[in-house]
Design a protein around this nucleic acid. Structure first.
Length: 816
RNA sequence: GCGAAAGUGGCGGAACUGGCAGACGCGCCGGCCUUAGGAGCCGGUGCCGCAAGGCGUGGGGGUUCAAAUCCCCCCUUUCGCACCA
């Protein structure tokens, strides 16, 4: 291999570094472009191919933006807190700060090999006290606004990680990190009131350029549903309880009500003769993991409480049951059961022999459905029957009418519910930002005064293995403080924050990481945010990307930022497979970037990843496939070696000029859409055309073409692009960069054709191709087609019944 | 079950708004060069067929002069959610 990347790749990285090429003056920029990738998580020493796939192509896109005249800010940092880092530290018996610093050191060096425009002078490390001080400050801002609060609630507990988890991190009842089934624990925890922003999180989606499926995922996650809250009475008691339903039109079909086992009224209303059974049931539910509890396959079981509810409109007596198919955390934790029109209630009824009442018919004035004959619930909308004066109304009308009737009696109202839950942010682990709260026996919950931040993690901790409560709780030196309010002895909150809090604002900190008087520079953030282009994995759709949006909206309301959506444009890179399968250690098909970077160079590796397939779809890695890019780069290199020095000036021949400008046009278009694969194909075509032409003799205008080609290839292969550009500009100092040269524009005049290929079809099948002047009309085209002689077999003895002519493209003759 | 995306040669993948299916690359075949080739260069390569030609974008229907692309039904794969009342 004669392509000496070992020489020039490190050389250009050194030059860029020394000339400060990637350290823009943020205050002075007049066309700012904030290009962001999801920062890395240094839980081990290795940068894997997924990182490369995220960072390499993203950098190519940002370099292109720079050549288009933007001042591009492309930061990099480390999401250094968190369970994986801590677990890794625990497994080695070393303080996480030590192992994390070590990992960051390794990973930073690997990141540098990518040759991206990272501004290393603005690196951010979320585990640095200079950073998490401001994470704590952020917590206090939310606390002041009532958006951070403590509550006792059944929460997801991972027995393996020994900590609680947010709803988003316990999807499907398993720990997001380790896969262990989570269990419910009743604990007092800190929450962020993200539910208060549910509607605004939905609304904001309309204003941002994000992948459709990511928006849909967030919409589904928020799960807004409109319906009616209805108050039922309780027999023999003065108080009432509420249920939420989306089907108030079925209110007359209620035959019983169901409480979640955790519902606070359950102990109060349970009849004494049922108490033993109820308590046994509640106990059994507690032992079940969410994973099992959430299974729809599981038989619905429950227990009668012995209590009766009173129907709000008919006054009917309705038995009150408890069952774990009712969730304590959604709606009011109680539902009205309408077995005829809800499949879950129907199944429950079948098991316990409860009555069924049909109140919706598929057609008006018809009694098609009979309770006795039902084999499943009829859940579609229809027409109301057996519903007093509401009979005959369509479901939609009935929902409105029933709710209004309830409203009139003070027994109901229109309401909205969300699937989204408040964000549980406490973690019983030590490798995170300590929650800046002091618990005082006298004053209660007291925020740490801002001038006392950061609440630093202790360095002298030796026992940091998880034990079910934060390891910090065992350190008197950390825990014991004086109350900032009354000065009496008090205790710190031993928990740390979810790492997703850290990553909810890091893009703000990047802009002014050295400021120790403010979390971010208000002027610079006003100028640079929101992020112009964010690129990262789709796995963060409902966690990081939702949390960050929430935090920014909260900061916006607090007047701390001037924008309320953090990421104006978002794209996800796809997944790279290997031999058609996901890469994993267990399959033994993991591709190690370092090996290929060493063999082919950084540019080739990056370029092959871009060439593999559509960036947003991902692609399949092939050890052989990369040779295609290696060959291309070699051929390109060799072409400059052989022709650059003596390249003629002048004008390119017409066809080569067309090829060059076509490539410019297509590559520009493709880059805008992050379609790197087709862009690279176009450059290959151009190089093939140059080789073909060069084989025939000297090419007038080649000098200009090579100068342009160097700029064209530069974003894709930055080191090589720099080298080739300097080959064409030997007079330029090394510090003059190709990335400060203008992106080449195509010349529309060069793309005007005089002769085009006209496809001639007979009955829709291609039978001939004609080289014709670009302006021919239909009659001329038909005449030319008939006279070419190649169609006689098809036209003989037939009549042309119709001719379809697409100017400049195609002529279809319908014959018969 | 609900929601989303995808299915094209031996392989990775192209195809703008319905207009030459298979760009570009890998692999393979043949040739040149070479002491040698896991280097380079030239040519070929969807399938069937000697050819003419026919057939081809998961399967089946349909719309159209014309369908990978639009419509209907079905199959498969991936991802997300999943008792949310």
């Amino acid at each position: 291999m004669d392509y000496p990347f070992q020489d020039f790749e490190p050389k250009w990285r050194r030059v860029w570094d020394q000339s400060g090429a990637h350290h823009p003056d943020l205050a002075a920029a007049d066309k700012p472009f904030y290009g962001l990738v999801m920062f890395s998580y240094p839980s081990a020493k290795k940068l894997h191919i997924g990182h490369w796939y995220n960072f390499g192509p993203a950098d190519s896109y940002f370099r292109w933006k720079r050549m288009q005249g933007h001042t591009v800010f492309e930061p990099m940092g480390f999401d250094a807190f968190g369970l994986p880092a801590e677990n890794y530290a625990v497994s080695r018996g070393v303080h996480p700060a030590v192992t994390t610093a070590e990992s960051i050191g390794f990973i930073r060096e690997q990141l540098k090999e990518i040759g991206a425009m990272y501004d290393w002078e603005r690196e951010v490390d979320t585990s640095d006290p200079g950073y998490y001080r401001w994470t704590q400050w952020l917590f206090l801002k939310l606390f002041q606004r009532g958006l951070a609060y403590q509550k006792q609630a059944p929460v997801n507990w991972c027995p393996s990680c020994q900590t609680v988890l947010a709803n988003e991190q316990a999807e499907g009842g398993a720990c997001e990190r380790c896969g262990t089934p989570v269990v419910k624990r009743d604990l007092k925890q800190w929450f962020f009131r993200i539910t208060e922003y549910a509607d605004r999180l939905l609304e904001g989606l309309e204003r941002i350029d994000w992948p459709r499926r990511t928006k849909i995922m967030q919409e589904n996650w928020i799960g807004r549903s409109t319906g009616t809250t209805i108050a039922f009475g309780l027999e023999g008691r003065d108080d009432r309880f509420e249920v939420f339903t989306t089907r108030p039109d079925t209110l007359f079909g209620v035959t019983y009500v169901v409480f979640a086992p955790e519902h606070p009224l359950v102990p109060e209303i349970t009849a004494s003769r049922q108490r033993a059974e109820v308590e046994a049931y509640i106990e059994s539910v507690r032992r079940v993991t969410d994973l099992e509890r959430l299974s729809t396959e599981r038989e619905k079981i429950g227990v009668f409480t012995g209590a009766y509810a009173v129907h709000p409109l008919t006054g009917e007596r309705l038995p009150v049951w408890i069952a774990d198919y009712v969730l304590a955390t959604y709606g009011t934790g109680a539902v009205m059961a309408v077995p005829a029109h809800d499949q879950r209630d129907f199944e429950f009824t079948r098991k316990y022999g409860l009555p069924v009442k049909v109140v919706i018919q598929p057609e008006v004035d018809a009694a098609i459905l009979e309770a006795e004959a039902l084999t499943q619930a009829f859940e579609d909308p229809g027409y109301m029957i057996h519903s007093g004066h509401f009979d005959g109304l369509r479901s939609e009308e009935g929902q409105e009418a029933v709710t209004r009737a309830l409203e009139a009696e003070g027994k109901g109202r229109f309401s909205v519910n969300y699937r989204l839950r408040d964000w549980l942010v406490s973690r019983q682990r030590m490798w995170g930002a300590p929650i800046p709260i002091i618990h005082c026996p006298k004053c209660g919950t007291v925020p740490v005064p801002e001038d006392q931040l950061p609440v630093k993690l202790p360095e002298d901790i030796t026992d940091f293995a998880p034990k079910g409560k934060s390891p910090l709780a065992n350190l008197p030196s950390f825990m014991n403080v004086t109350c900032p309010k009354c000065g009496e002895p008090a205790q710190r909150d031993p928990d740390t924050m979810d790492t997703f809090v850290d990553s909810s604002w890091y893009f703000l900190r990047y802009l002014s990481p050295d400021r120790d008087d403010v979390a971010w520079d208000p002027e610079i953030s006003r100028k640079w945010l929101p992020v112009d282009q964010y690129i990262g994995g789709a796995e963060h759709s409902t966690m990081h990307l939702l949390y960050a949006r929430f935090i920014i909206k909260a900061l916006y309301d607090a007047g701390l930022v001037t924008f309320d959506e953090p990421f104006a444009r978002l794209r996800h890179q796809g997944i790279i497979t290997h031999k058609g399968e996901k890469m994993s250690k267990s399959r033994g098909n993991v591709v190690n970037p370092d090996d290929f970077v060493a063999k082919y160079g950084s540019d080739v590796f990056r370029m092959y990843m871009m060439f593999m397939g559509d960036y947003e779809q991902g692609g399949d890695w092939s050890d052989e496939g990369i040779t295609g890019i290696a060959r291309f780069v070699n051929r390109l290199w060799r072409f400059y070696q052989d022709h650059a020095a003596a390249a003629p000036d002048g004008e390119l021949p017409r066809d080569l000029n067309y090829a060059l400008n076509h490539a410019l046009e297509q590559v520009t278009r493709d880059l805008g859409e992050l379609r790197f694969n087709t862009a690279i194909s176009r450059m290959m075509e151009l190089l093939n055309a140059l080789y073909e032409a060069a084989a025939k003799g000297p090419i007038p205008g080649l000098r200009g073409a090579l100068e342009t080609f160097a700029r064209l290839v530069a974003p894709f292969a930055p080191h090589l692009g720099e080298e080739l550009w300097h080959t064409m500009h030997p007079e330029s100092a090394e510090t003059v960069s190709v990335f400060d040269q203008p992106w080449p524009q195509h010349d529309p005049a060069a793309l005007v054709r005089e002769v085009i290929t006209l496809v001639v079809q007979i009955n829709g099948k291609v039978r001939d191709k004609l080289e014709v002047p670009v302006g021919v009309d239909q009659d001329q085209a038909v005449a030319l087609a008939q006279s070419s002689g190649r169609l006689t077999a098809w036209l003989e003895g037939k009549q042309i019944r119709k001719a379809v002519f697409v100017p400049g493209k195609l002529l279809n003759l319908v014959v018969g």
